[in-house]
Design a binder for these strands. Sequence first.
RNA 1: GGGCGCGUAGCUCAGUUGGUUAGAGCGCCUGCUUCACACGCAGGAGGUCACAGGUUCGAGUCCUGUCGCGCCCACCA
Length: 897
Amino acid sequence: MPIDKVYEPQRFEPHWAEWWVSSGIFHASPSAPGPVFSLVIPPPNVTGSLHMGHMLEHTEIDVTIRWRRMMGHNTLWLPGTDHAGIATQMVVERELAKEGLDRHQLGREEFERRVWCWKEQSGGAILRQMVRTGTSCDWSRARFTLDEGLSRAVREVFVRLYEKGLIYRGEYMINWCPRCLTALSDLEVVHEESEGNLWHFRYPVNEPAGADPRHLIVATTRPETMLGDTAVAVNPKDARYASLRGKTVRLPLMDRDIPVIFDDMADPEFGTGVVKVTPAHDPNDFAAGQRHNLPLVQVIDQHGRMTPAAGRFAGLGRFEARKQVVAALDQQGLLNKVQPYTLSAGRCQRCKTIVEPLVSTQWFAKMKPLAEPAIKAVETGEIKFIPENWVKTYNEWMYNIRDWCISRQLWWGHRIPAWHCATCGKITVSREDPTQCAHCQSEDIKQDPDVLDTWFSSGLWPFSTLGWPEKTVDLATYYPTSLLITGFDILFFWVARMIMMGIECTGEVPFRQVYIHGLVRDAEKQKMSKTRGNTIDPLDVTERYGTDAVRFSLLRGAAPGTDIVTSEDRMAAARSFANKIWNAARFIFMNMEKAGVETYELATVDCCLPEANEYSITIPVEDRWIFSRLARCAELTGRAIETYRYHEAADTLYHFFWGEFCDWYVELKKLRMQQEPEVKAHLRNLLRTFEISLRLLHPVMPFLTEELWQRLVRKTDARPASIALAPYPDYDPSVIDHKSILDMDVFQDIVTAARNLRADLGEADPKKTLDGVLYSRSLGFEIASREKSFIEKLASVQLELRQEAAPKLEGAAVRSTTEFDLVLRLPAAQADAAIKRLEKEIANLEKVIANSRRQLEDETFLSRAPGKVVDQIKSKLADYETQLAKNQAALESLASK
RNA sequence: GGGCGCGUAGCUCAGUUGGUUAGAGCGCCUGCUUCACACGCAGGAGGUCACAGGUUCGAGUCCUGUCGCGCCCACCA
């Protein structure tokens, strides 16, 4: 049963990953005891595969969920995937293109069938990857946004909102992607700055015969749209143009007269103060057109080509048309000037094609009435954002929210439950598929071809996944969910909409807290992206470093409100830690074998206290100490996880396990078991502390701890099936033994002092023992006499103990603290290093002492600083002064040589 | 044009409500194949906390400004 020398997670991680699923230990039961803690996963796209962002998010969620589960909460982590409308449709269309097909050749039904096939393949992949990485979801409750139940929820919400007048259909200006051939919401348009031009054109003013010819100069970044101009606008307060009232101008190239309108949209400060108005191709102009009743002349079509309304430019692509329009105007002498200009163009979030603002009939959701209660919920603290400053961003968007274009001209998604009547032209919106028009009973009705924005269904995710609109037990138990963990990139897309939809549909907030994590970046602080080629594949590093190491490295970088830097260096460091744990286990297993102990039986007392009756001996200092440290570690780790300071949790565990458990406790136990006869008693506590440590570590390193725990702990009826179901170590502060901490401090100080002195003397080889004397009349003597042989062993010294004050010694290296003075005999040749250290120590002490004295003499300080702080300084000052005196004496004696 | 965030050791970053010799990981230097671990052990070097002011008994921490960097939102042609 000895385990392998080197930590090789590949050998056991897949096994536990499978077992966690097959054993069903993460299955949530509404009737389970304990406070409810529920969370729904931000559903990854079915088309996707796991990336580092998921890995981080899932790790943070998993740590939280595992910790809560061990704390005895009734936990649910509901997993699932999103159908991701455009993204998925694009991927499948690309696949079809390889076969030389497009979706129209297949037809809607066949195309949908193909997407479902694709979903079965790739949707399975990401779920399998999640299983492999150990996420402790309840897989029996996995959901997909196009599931029957969720589709019913979508339909119910659509009908309700329609009936309340919160969903309407109308002709407005929307963002249109000429490549995807669908409308987009404002959020799906990303703005990108690029270098372009500002062209200035002359539009001749129509003057009565005989008057002086005049022209107006208009500027535009999009010359091709001028073909659709139906007015020019000037500011009503702009005195320069007052005389234009009632005038028209001749639109060049089109030979059309268009009116001069007076509207605030024109900024007198900008350019000439005259702006061309193209209501069909610019959102501003569209609004102006409505105010002034201007006609719409659409010169660009859905494919981004010029329409017949563009006259001789008809059929050209929009960018080619731009060139030709400029050339034509130039030729006619109407090009006034060209200015370089940075403009921000809207691009399709998915395919990066420049979006075309077009007037189109679409479905919209009215947002203001939904936003109001959602704002209030955050304001009143019913929903808490962490970090808090995201509230500002949230509010900014919510207060300025505009109606949401929810229809998409796609085939993959939730079909809009509206039927158009060919007879009366009216619309029937219904929960069940209608067979006739609700208005005229005609049977000549056809379902609207559009589907809903993919975020419409994700907005319902927290309750649709729990069975809503049915009144299910799950819904009653787990809704509202406790927590949402997600990235800020989908704050508006998803989080805000869930809040609005949740409140609207269920009357309750969808979650109590939202923890917003940072972005995963590479070692160069670059955003990870496929195009940059700097992605780290989580599955790849999981194989090479182990899932636990990848998780741990991410957590160590995951301070709230900051981005998360990853690199293989960090993973290697985390793997070293895992290896350390592994080897501690190896040492323990080895000693069990030596002592003939087969397995460890879980202690009946679960708090961090040694079981006194196990001992026929006095409880040694390291045991009293380590249990206090265990309790402290549990407390700090728990509090860190609870407040989403994952980096702190990881750090606390790291330093506890490595710096305290391994470096001191195990080392001491090692000696104890070598030198003392009560091996089993010592082993018993070693096992106990190790087992508790494994439980402390389990939320962050689930695989390794499960593997070791299963090997260590004896299977009994009382034992939980998995460490994941074992209780998180109790951290009642009353178990902390302060005396033991003091004792251990002194013990460590003596050992460290001896090691320092050895180094000063240039003797780094631990095989060579040096002689020394320890002087102390207090705790130092007590500890040193009790643990003399251990100090000698750990520091490679031979000690003589004297219960007296240190005399003035010549030719010796001295290390002094308030509790003791340690003296090593010094070969004369090596005084320099010792002197140097003393001088440094003295300089430090002098600085601190001066500082403290100054403060203690300062009346204002004494009167204003809290008594606690003053006392602290006083007692420390005394300590510093004794140390200083001792060091000075030592230096004097050394220097005099 | 608004909003948010960052600038701390060679590198990457922590630093909870201001409280007294500023921490970690990696890297570097010295010495150790000590029977759990060289993915290790022991010891060590390295920081005027971007800059300038201010508040305070006390500032890496709070305020103002400057410089540098990043991100988000916005219909100015």
